[in-house]
């Protein structure tokens, strides 16, 4: 077992001194794994992601990436936001190339290499032909693809995704789950994949995508259990229909059912 890519050691986060969003969370994230974090609303999933991104400091505990403490945002950790955070004044191409042009991710790239990578990424997410459109001219699913392309173009070591499929309708969602796994590289050997931390409230989505699912409880957010998802890759529609898939979903649902009910009724 190699050293973890990211190590969270009893990380806590409280707001305003009294509200504890995350309580003593310890978690190792392995290199190249797809880790999903699920939990009912109020479990501090987004807070965990923001701390990993360096957008919010932890109140106590330590977070380390490659053995070095996380002390702020960095281009080696790319973030995909729930609302996509596309720049409305930039076209699809302008958004995808943003990090390469203005951030450190493009250092050492010639303009030709940069253009080549941007075009390749746009093609990879299936947006060829829409390069010159503005975000407001795109559907929700297409915007999501732009955000994904912007994330991939910078080639960060770690992809942090905050409920990126939450705003989409059910059909688009299934299609984009398949796409996401393809782009992530589920056909390639594990050593060539990037590390993904994927936040979601949808259990089936977490099970379908992830190698491991971290289940959080709410108020305060604590790590309840880590579930290994040993479904074979590549996964697809057959995976969704399999009995193992249903069993895994069911067992995670059992873990959080009580709290989810409580959260809904209150």
């Amino acid at each position: 077992m190699s050293a973890p890519k990211i190590r969270l050691d009893s990380v806590s986060k409280s707001f305003g001194g009294s509200v504890v969003a995350v309580d003593k969370l310890s978690l190792d994230i392995r290199d190249g794994e797809f880790l999903a974090i699920v939990g009912p609303s109020g479990c501090g999933k987004t807070t965990v992601l923001n701390m990993l991104a360096g957008l919010e400091p932890a109140t106590s505990g330590t977070m380390a990436l490659n053995g070095k403490p996380i002390e702020g945002p960095g281009a080696e950790r790319g973030v995909m936001f729930q609302d996509y955070a596309l720049f409305p004044w930039r076209t699809v191409r302008g958004n995808v190339e943003f990090g390469l042009v203005y951030g450190p991710a493009g250092n050492g790239l010639s303009p030709a290499e940069r253009t080549e990578r941007v075009e390749r990424t746009i093609e990879m997410v299936g947006l060829k032909g829409s390069q010159d459109k503005y975000p407001h001219q795109l559907s929700g699913g297409m915007r999501q693809r732009v955000a994904l392309a912007r994330l991939m173009a910078s080639e960060p070591e770690i992809l942090l995704m905050d409920e990126p499929l939450a705003a989409l309708d059910a059909q688009t969602r299934v299609i984009l789950q398949d796409e996401l796994l393809r782009i992530w590289g589920q056909d390639r050997p594990a050593s060539e994949r990037r590390t993904v931390v994927f936040i979601t409230h949808a259990i089936d989505e977490a099970v379908f995508l992830a190698d491991r699912v971290a289940v959080l409880s709410s108020h305060p957010g604590r790590l309840k259990q880590i579930v290994d998802i040993d479904l074979p890759r590549p996964r697809g529609d057959a995976t969704r229909r399999s009995g193992d898939f249903a069993r895994l979903c069911q067992s995670i649902w059992e873990l959080i059912r009580e709290e989810a009910y409580r959260a809904t009724m209150n």
Partner: peptide, 10 residues
Amino acid sequence: SLMRAALTMG
């Protein structure tokens, strides 16, 4: 989130 996106891209 736009400012945050710019932050995370360094």
